[in-house]
Simulated assay, not measured.
Amino acid sequence: MLAQVTHLHFPLKNFKPLAQKTVIAMGFFDGVHRGHQAVIQTAAKLAQERQLPLVVLTYNPYPGAVFQEMALPLRYLTPLTQKVALLSQLGVKQVYCLQLTSHLAVQSPQNFVDQVLMQLNPAVVVAGFDHLYGLASEHADMQHLATYSRNRFEVAVVPALNDVGKVSSSRIRQALLEGRVADAAADLGRYHQTSGLVVHGDARGRTLGYPTVNIATPEAEWLPTIGVYAVKIQINEQWYQGMASIGRNITFEAERPITVEINIFDFNDQVYGELVQIEWIAYLRGEEKFVSADALIKQLHQDKAQAQALLKAVND
């Protein structure tokens, strides 16, 4: 069952403060990676011990859109709907999503505590060691949150996960930018997923013996870099194996836009208009320009064999 989502806008003029004490897990939680999972699990344990409801306080949009000029398009490891689904799997039943605006961003940390956190009636506030709130120049960090609480609630700070280096959303984004989907999966605790809509393409793959489904991916989702991958794709609640190409198909049209095409193994159905989920399992190779269609077909044979071996290893 999905968590209920309540959207908040600062100042919280039309929000009725909660009457019951809560345990709050707060953070942006993009990716809901293993570090984020530790925050939620810590908060859930405290909520269970105190027999209080667990709530999550998160934000939208990505903080970079408010605090700085962005070098890359606004994209998410987990858009809000996927984030809520993942939080729900961790036992969260209530999510408060606070709109991150310029007015909110300039609030002092004390104002943030008094005017936002206290409206959720916290008994305990839980967050990662590096979580910030309010003006960073005014010590809006977890080390000072107990001071701003004025003894109204407890504070629990979850340390960094360092078993394979510091797990962070930025590290996962960098891994995807470099095609290192296995490293991203290690930090996420699952394979990175994107969604999409099956649309018509130029049908060239069919003439090569490798028909593909063409996926229109939402602009706000974080695709791995250009290349060829072993993937799983979910269509109408059924998972299939395949290999995906993210690229421009430079063998035939060097200047075409980037597309996502997936050759699904042992599949022969028309699925235009279907909404799909893609799991990015393993990177196979970069995009290459081939001297002929025959050379490309030969490489596709090798790609398929490699993808099938990797996917078999994952399933075994």
Rank of each mutant, 00 (worst) to 15 (best):
L176W: 09
T225C: 14
V213K: 02
L188Q: 02
A156P: 09
L120A: 00
P211G: 00
P218L: 06
A146Q: 14
K166I: 15
D187S: 09
I258Y: 03
E154V: 06
A184L: 10
L135T: 08
L135F: 03
D163E: 14
I235T: 07
V231I: 14
I250D: 04
A186C: 09
T207K: 09
G189F: 08
I262S: 00
V167W: 01
M243C: 15
V158M: 07
Q241Y: 09
D130W: 06
S149C: 09
A184W: 10
G242E: 13
S169G: 02
S170H: 07
E237W: 10
L208A: 01
V181P: 04
F129M: 08
L223E: 07
A216D: 15
S245T: 12
V228A: 01
G165D: 12
P224T: 03
V164E: 14
H144G: 01
R152L: 11
I262A: 00
Y133H: 03
A186G: 03
G209R: 12
I250R: 08
K232N: 07
D202I: 06
A123N: 10
R190K: 14
A136V: 13
P218K: 01
G247M: 12
L161R: 13
S149G: 12
V158K: 00
R171P: 04
A136N: 12
L223T: 05
D187G: 02
P218D: 03
M243A: 06
M243F: 15
V125T: 07
N249R: 15
H139V: 06
Q241D: 13
Q115N: 08
L176H: 03
Q193L: 07
R152G: 05
A203I: 07
R152P: 05
G227D: 11
Y210M: 01
Y148Q: 03
A156V: 13
I235A: 02
N162R: 14
G247C: 08
T147L: 14
V157F: 05
V164K: 14
L197G: 01
T194I: 14
I233S: 00
V181F: 04
G247T: 07
A216L: 14
E178N: 13
R150P: 07
V198A: 01
E261Q: 11
